[in-house]
Amino acid sequence: MQLPRLRWHIAVFLAPAVLIYSTVMIFPLFNTLRLALYAEVDQGRVFVGFENFRTLFFDPIWSEQFWNALGNNFWFFLIHMLVQNPIGIALAALLSHPRLRFAALYRSAIFIPTVLSFVIVGFAWKLILSPIWGIAPSLLDAVGLKSLFAPWLGKEEYALTTLAMISVWQFVGIPMMLIYAALLSIPEDILEAGEIDGVTGLAAFWKIKLPLILPSIGIISILTFVGNFNAFDLIYAAQGALAGPDFSTDILGTFMYRTFFGFQLQLGDPHMGSAIAGAMFAIILVGVCLYLFGIQTRMRRYQL
């Protein structure tokens, strides 16, 4: 059937996409990993093997910053998993209720923060939480909790958690939408069969719907993981490149930016920046592989 001659149109269809993708994405990705193995000595590039990684992991000055950023990044991710995804699932469960009115309206409104840029979100919350403006303390006062107020973004012990919560506020729309879609695709007769057996309301959610949407929860978890370990914008917009106070909100993205670009008196170092990018790449790769081979293949899927 197939014609043996070279079919040029296939090459023409593929060429632009493959060309741009390879030169602007794949090649720089590997080039960055390669640059991580070099260092600048006397304005020349010298191959140093894994020296940069040794500096990053074990040199007292670098490693302290690196492990701090990594630890913060894990905390950032944990908050998203524990707060964003459960809230998203709960909202989706409410929205997918068959006889709920105004569902489309709620859905669109709750999704609005997700379409705003980090810059807007970061500054808007900075203003709202600011003790100078006083919106947050006066709101807390209205419900009698004024004593709880603290300048959260300025305190080392709260700043990271506060930023993570702001990010949760912004992105809760994504798990909500994806779970909502998964819930809608559950056939009505399964739920009706449950009802006949007396499984309704909350019990129906825990015993029937939740097991059926587990694959979607898996996808959301890995999307959250990749997004969080690649995050930068919100921290930079709200706290600047120094990720203050005292680096307490520093995550891998801001650490890489500072190292690569330099800040204040420290000069930028593309090779150390590449090494951090290499570490981020490894972390994301491990996470994605864990998901693909460890979770996704073992998850029970039910034929609907």
Binding site: P28, L29, T32, N230, F232, A277, F281, L285
Partner: peptide, 11 residues
């Protein structure tokens, strides 16, 4: 799955 930001230095 792999964010393009990882390659920023070389880009």
């Amino acid at each position: 799955m792999i964010p393009i930001r990882i390659g920023t230095v070389a880009i």
